[in-house]
Simulated assay, not measured.
Amino acid sequence: MDQRISFLSLAVRDLEASRRFYVEGLGWTPDLEVEGDVVMIMVGEHVVLSLWDREHFQAEVGTIAEGDGVPPFTISHNVATEAEVDEVLATARAAGAEPVHEAQPREWGGYTGYFADPDGYRWEIATNPGPIGHKVLP
Rank of each mutant, 00 (worst) to 15 (best):
Gly67Pro: 08
Pro105His: 12
Glu107Arg: 12
Glu66Lys: 13
Glu102Cys: 08
Ala97Trp: 14
Val85Phe: 01
Leu89Glu: 09
Ala95Met: 08
Ala90Thr: 07
Thr74Asp: 02
Pro71Ser: 03
Ala94Leu: 06
Ala97Ser: 09
Ala92Glu: 04
Phe73Gly: 02
Asp86Met: 07
Glu98Met: 05
Gly69Val: 02
Gly69Asn: 07
Asp86Val: 03
Pro99Cys: 03
Ala94Met: 06
Pro99Glu: 00
Phe73Ser: 01
Asn78Leu: 12
Ala83Pro: 00
Thr74His: 09
Val85Ile: 00
Glu84His: 01
Glu102Ile: 02
Ala92Gln: 11
Glu102Gln: 14
His77Val: 15
Glu84Pro: 00
Pro105Val: 11
Thr74Asn: 06
Asp86Leu: 04
Arg106His: 04
Ala95Thr: 10
Val85Arg: 00
His77Ser: 06
Glu84Cys: 04
Arg106Cys: 10
Pro71Ile: 04
Thr91Ser: 09
Val70His: 00
His101Ala: 13
His77Pro: 00
Glu66Ile: 05
Glu102Asp: 15
Ala90Pro: 10
Ala94Lys: 11
Glu84Leu: 04
Trp108Met: 05
Arg106Pro: 00
Ala97Phe: 14
Tyr111Ile: 11
Pro105Thr: 09
Asp86Thr: 07
Glu98Val: 14
Thr112Arg: 11
Ala83Cys: 01
Gly67Thr: 11
Gly69Arg: 09
Gly67Arg: 14
Ala94Ser: 14
Thr112Asp: 13
Ala95Asp: 13
His77Asp: 01
Glu66Trp: 01
Gly69Ile: 00
Val79Ser: 02
Ala80His: 05
Ser76Leu: 02
Thr91Val: 09
Ala103Cys: 09
Gly110Asp: 10
Gly109Ala: 08
Ala80Ile: 05
Glu87Cys: 00
Leu89Gly: 12
Ser76Gln: 09
Pro71Thr: 05
His101Arg: 15
Glu84Met: 10
Ala90Val: 02
Pro72Gln: 11
Ala97Thr: 13
Thr112Gly: 07
Arg106Thr: 14
Val79Met: 08
Tyr111Val: 12
Val70Met: 11
Phe73Lys: 03
Gly96Val: 10
Gln104Val: 01
Ala103Gly: 07
Gly69Thr: 02
Ala92Leu: 05
Leu89Ile: 10
Glu102Gly: 15
Val70Ser: 06
Leu89His: 07
Glu66Met: 11
Gly110Trp: 07
His77Ala: 12
Ala94Glu: 15
Val70Gln: 07
Ser76Asn: 13
Val79Asp: 04
Gly69Lys: 05
Asn78Met: 10
Pro105Phe: 04
Thr112Ser: 15
Glu66Thr: 14
Glu82Gly: 11
Arg106Asp: 11
Thr74Pro: 00
Gly69Gln: 04
Ala92Cys: 08
His77Met: 05
Gly96Ile: 12
Asp86Cys: 03
Gly110Tyr: 09
Ala83His: 04
Gln104Phe: 03
Glu66Gln: 15
